[in-house]
Design a protein around this nucleic acid. Structure first.
Length: 397
RNA sequence: GGCAGAUUACCCGAGUGGCCAAAGGGGGCUGACUGUAAAUCAGCUGGCAACGCCUUCACUGGUUCGAAUCCAGUAUCUGCCA
């Protein structure tokens, strides 16, 4: 058991860990007001440097007084570095999943069929083609840090290269070394910027651990970055659901005990428990809100799609005992109707529920660690989540 | 009353002799979504005992080896002239 509880102190308050961080890529948790985000229980919000740099421009956030002030969120904030976009705009995330079983032998920089490559990596940084207007932009460790300092979140991430499962081991090694060098440059730039902004509140920098599914690479990355002056670490990269726990475990064993570990982009209930058990402190994920906009809702018995005709006359809440605003006030039939008639309120109501569900799950795990009932809770959650929905995603085996 | 035109699947709408159970939308149904190019994407959408059969393109009859497509009549609708 590597799971633990703790507290992350930020200029905008504490984060009790384990904690689920709501994703607000473009300085908004999609479809939700900050008041709603707070009331559903989220402790912090994570935005994205690449997106805010393109629109409205990180200088605007700077002028506004920083991310929190700009979006009127008073709690702690994070920014991702734009590293994820190296992959998603580079190889095309959607197609990469499809290609998993198709082509393992192609060139490492292969672009999915029918996709235009919008990012190209070199040792110094990345050329991005804006997904908004096609204009060309340069991101590097230094640029990412400057952008993130302008955005002004409490916790920032180092600029990294996220590889895919299709990349060869050779490429993973090459990429990992690039990410290591970039981490050093991020720290140097971060300190330079921190010095030049004397008097400002302390902002933390997390390094990002890559290394795909390879134990030696993961451990080495942790040792390398763990020795650097980071305030915490993100565990990122291509990982299959089955080895998520194992990989997080390797990282937790190697990384400094006294620094927080954030698992990037994970939120399915089983994954959360696996990750917490293996030492992850915080999480973020787009899933609760994205899936909500496509009408799927989480329940203790699995994830279901509210667009189904079977909910047309279902006058029960999304989840019977749920304490969220949505479940306290609305029925499945009503939200089904909103979704079918394309009313925007469906996005809001389901997002509130899904975020609340995920945040609460992590909160429950935290409490369970404290009173020693973590494994009991995990067993209960896991068995229930799959009982009503034996194979919700074809996983796990 | 006269002249001209229209009628296609749940809706809109292509198709004017065989490659047509019939393009394309919409709607409907199902599924996917894990550091957000995602209010997105994919599949299905006449019936069936289903690699084949049956019933459909307003209705009735006809021409033809073969008709959603051509002809005649009927019905309804739309313009213009009275």
């Amino acid at each position: 058991m590597l799971g633990r509880t703790g507290v992350i102190n930020t200029p905008h308050g504490q984060i009790k860990t384990p904690a689920f961080i709501a994703v607000g890529t473009k300085a908004t948790v999609k479809a939700l007001t900050p008041v709603q985000v707070e009331q559903l229980g989220a402790q912090a919000v994570l935005a994205n440097a690449y997106h805010l740099y393109l629109q409205p421009g990180s200088d605007i956030l700077d002028e506004a007084g920083g991310l929190g002030k700009f979006m009127s969120w008073e709690g702690p904030t994070f920014t991702d570095s734009g590293g994820f976009q190296v992959m998603s705009l580079g190889s095309g995330f959607k197609k990469v999943i499809d290609m998993k079983s198709v082509d393992q032998s192609g060139p490492d920089d292969a672009v999915a069929p029918g996709k235009e490559r919008l990012a190209n990596v070199d040792d110094d940084g990345v050329w991005f083609k804006s997904h908004l207007d096609g204009s060309k932009h340069r991101f590097s460790p230094e640029i990412s840090m400057n952008v993130q300092h302008q955005i002004g979140a409490d916790i920032m991430f180092a600029f990294d290269e996220l590889t895919t499962l299709q990349n060869s081991r050779g490429y993973q090694v090459e990429s990992l070394e690039r990410t290591r060098l970039w981490a050093q440059r991020c720290i140097a730039e971060h300190f330079a910027l921190t010095d030049s902004r004397a008097g400002k509140e302390y902002q933390a920098l997390f390094g990002v651990i890559q290394g795909a599914q390879y134990e030696d690479l993961r451990r080495k990355a942790c040792q390398d970055l763990g020795a650097m002056a980071f305030d915490g670490f993100g565990i990122g990269g291509a990982l299959e659901k089955e080895n998520l726990g194992t990989i997080v475990g390797w990282c937790s064993e190697e990384l400094p005990e006294n620094k927080p570990r954030h698992l990037l982009g994970i939120s399915e209930p089983d994954d959360i428990f696996t990750a917490i058990e293996n030492g992850a402190d915080t999480f973020d994920c787009v899933s609760p809100t994205r899936v909500a906009r496509n009408s799927a809702f989480y329940t203790p018995h699995g994830r279901f799609n509210l667009s189904g005709a079977r909910y047309k006359r279902d006058f029960t809440p999304l989840v019977e005992d749920c304490s969220c605003y949505t479940c306290q006030n609305f029925t499945r039939a009503y939200i089904h109707h909103l979704h079918k008639s394309k009313e925007l309120l469906s996005h809001t109501l389901i997002s509130i529920h899904n975020e609340h569900f995920t945040v609460s799950l992590v909160d429950a795990a935290r409490n369970a660690i404290e009173d020693g009932s973590f494994f009991e809770l995990k067993a209960k959650v896991m068995s229930e989540y799959y009982a009503g929905n034996p194979d919700p995603q074809g996983l796990p085996a």
